[in-house]
Each structure stands twice: as C-alpha cells, then as structure tokens.
C-alpha cells in the first residue's frame, strides 16, 4: 500500500496529466455521439450572451445584405398569395374552401419560429450556429432550421434563452433530400473540404441529373416541410464503380452572412416518432 502511495506521489504530474486527457477525450467522444457534455447548458447560455454582444456590432455591417435577402424572400412569398392568381371566368372556376381554413389549426403540421443568429462558424470541421431563442421560447432539440434562402441545419442543444444548431457544414450532419426533377431521394452530407459545397449521395444512376438541377427537402425527413430549397447541383463527380451518383451541391444558404433563421416546429413529430419506434420494437 505504501508503495502505491509512493508511486502516485512520484508520478503525480504524469498521472494528473493522464486524468485530464481522459476527461477531455471522454467529453469529446460523448459530445460527438450524443451532443451532451458537462456544463454544456450553462456554457451555451454564457457563450451565447458573449456572442450576442459581438453580433450587436457585427450586425450593422451585414444590414444591407440581410435586408436584401429578406426582401427577396418577401417577394417570393407575396407571389404565392392567392390574389395573384386569377383565372378567366368559366363555370369550372376553382373556389377556395374557406371553412377548411378555420379548422386548419388542428391539421397544422409545421410552425415557424423566427430567431436571430448570434454565433456562427464556417472555418471548422464541426460548425455550429448559436441562435437567440431557447427552451423558454419553444425551441427543442431536433427541430429543423431554415434561412431565407434555404435549409441551414438542425437544433442539437437548447439552453434557457439560446440554442445551438448543427450547421449543414458539419461532418456528422445528414439530411434526406430529393431532386426536383424526378423526386429521387438521397442524403446530403458535408465532406469537410470547402464550406461552399456539400455532397449529395445515394441518388440512383437511373435518375436524370444535370448540372444546375434544384435539390429540395423531402417530406420523409420529418424535420423539414417538403419542397424547401436546399441547393443546386454544381458538379457530377464521375464514379463508374457505383450504382449511385455522387453530386457536388452548392447550398442555397450563404453561411457567411446569415443573420435570421426560422426554427421549424413539427407539431406531429412526437406522434410520428412514437409509431415508428413502436414498429421497430414489434419487428424485433
């Protein structure tokens, strides 16, 4: 026993160093797997506040571009208003059923919550955004996040007033998307090479793909409503050995100057998840 104590005393520094290394590695691997780490909630609140202070200054430099992108989005949405569509009178004119609108509350699936981006990185391998909207403002983990131009990521961590969003530019991010022409589904990932491009995989070679094709969200992802812009096909990476395409996609969202995002609350997510989980249990 005495020798044990002597050993610890003699190699105290080295053992101490080992302990700290193990602690940090366990933090790292735990976070990469489950997105939880000690003090993460407290620290998100604190770093969020500092990020917000910084954003208060940086925001002015982006005002013009932010305004532009919001105006563009407004125009796009305005064009969808039903007053803009008027068919010439005929006896088969389509009439909007107004009763449906009243009862629409119960069938509303997606609810949009606006949020300001206060922190954002693009230069790392694991990029996250911090948004100024948290648990107290109805944000929960696993909600999709879209920007004015296209999808941005998924909420992974929520504190009282802030939330962190795993960006599309994250090595572990994966989302199901589809091609606009043909609706073949595939998965978007990031290979960590350039923040300007992401990779679209698992599209079968039977699909017709051309450069410039639009990529949209698929309703099977359940985090995002269908048909939200993801990006456009920039290049088709030649790969003759595989039955699937590897496509280089340019994301629609500009991650360098994003200021506002919308968190998407899928109100029917719980129900869908419950039935999927119970099915999985039954099969096993």
């Amino acid at each position: 026993m005495r020798n044990v104590f002597l050993f610890i005393r003699r190699h105290f520094n080295f053992l101490f160093f080992l302990v700290l290394q193990i602690v940090s590695l366990s933090f790292l691997f735990r976070y990469n797997k489950f997105h939880e780490a000690a003090f993460m909630n407290v620290s998100t609140e604190l770093t969020g506040r500092i990020n917000e202070k910084y954003n208060g200054i940086e925001y002015y430099f982006q005002l013009k571009r932010t305004n532009e992108s919001l105006v563009k989005e407004n125009i796009r949405l305005r064009q969808l208003l039903k007053e803009n569509y008027e068919a010439p009178d005929s006896n088969r004119r389509l009439v909007m059923d107004t009763i449906r609108v009243d009862s629409a509350r119960s069938i509303l699936k997606y609810n949009y919550l606006e949020a300001k981006v206060v922190g954002n990185t693009t230069a790392l391998q694991f990029n996250y955004l911090t948004i100024h909207r948290g648990f107290a403002q109805q944000v929960r983990p696993n909600m999709g996040v879209v920007g004015p131009q296209g999808i941005v990521g998924t909420v992974v961590n929520v504190s009282e007033n802030y939330a962190t969003v795993m960006s599309l530019l994250h090595r572990q991010y994966k989302v199901v998307v589809k091609l606009k022409n043909g609706a073949e589904r595939g998965a978007i990932e990031w290979d960590g090479l350039s923040p300007l491009f992401v990779t679209l995989k698992d599209i079968p070679k039977s699909a017709k793909v051309a450069k410039g094709d639009t990529v949209l969200t698929s309703q099977t992802s359940s985090l995002f409503p269908a048909n939200i812009m993801v990006g456009t096909v920039y290049d088709i990476v030649p790969d003759n050995a595989s039955n699937f395409y590897t496509l280089k996609v340019r994301p629609a969202t500009n991650f360098f100057n994003i200021e506002y995002v919308y968190v998407i609350d899928n109100m029917q997510f719980e129900e869908q998840k419950r039935i999927e989980d119970s099915t999985r249990k039954k099969v096993q």
Partner: peptide, 20 residues
C-alpha cells in the same frame, strides 16, 4: 482549452491539445 471548446462547441478537443 475547455473555455475555447465551449465557444466552438467541441468540448474536449482543444482542452486535450492544450493539456498536452
């Protein structure tokens, strides 16, 4: 290292390198 990690949301990564 850990305080930088909490900013970059990679708890443990920079902490391990700094400890070393």
């Amino acid at each position: 290292g850990l305080s930088l990690d909490y900013f970059s949301k990679t708890p443990g990564l920079h902490a391990a390198a700094c400890t070393l």
